[in-house]
Amino acid sequence: MAKIKPRVKVPKTASAGDVITIKTLIKHKMESGQRKDKEGKVIPRKIINHFKVDFAGKTVFEAQIQPGTSANPFLSFSVKVQESGEFHFTWTDDDGSVYEAKKSIAVS
């Protein structure tokens, strides 16, 4: 399916100082640019090349993604949270499109 849709999982609540696990997944073909079609022509590269997570205006996680990453890249990471706020996820595609998702957490 052509539609590119991100999914994120963030705990709804946490205590201050907790280390939480965030899981992210984006449905994407991740065409590596190494493959050829039936006529022998190279299928142009189209991958998510950059992923960034901001929390309260500060980048808490960032990744550069290279070809060779499988379709539907799943990224999971840990963050230490001190205060309530909103996570802002951005995936950047090779063609310049940006896919976004937001998820807030209540910290007590």
Partner: peptide
Amino acid sequence: DFENPAFTAVDTGEE
């Protein structure tokens, strides 16, 4: 459900 790889297909099904 997040890690269940079938859920990409479920998303497609919903579309």
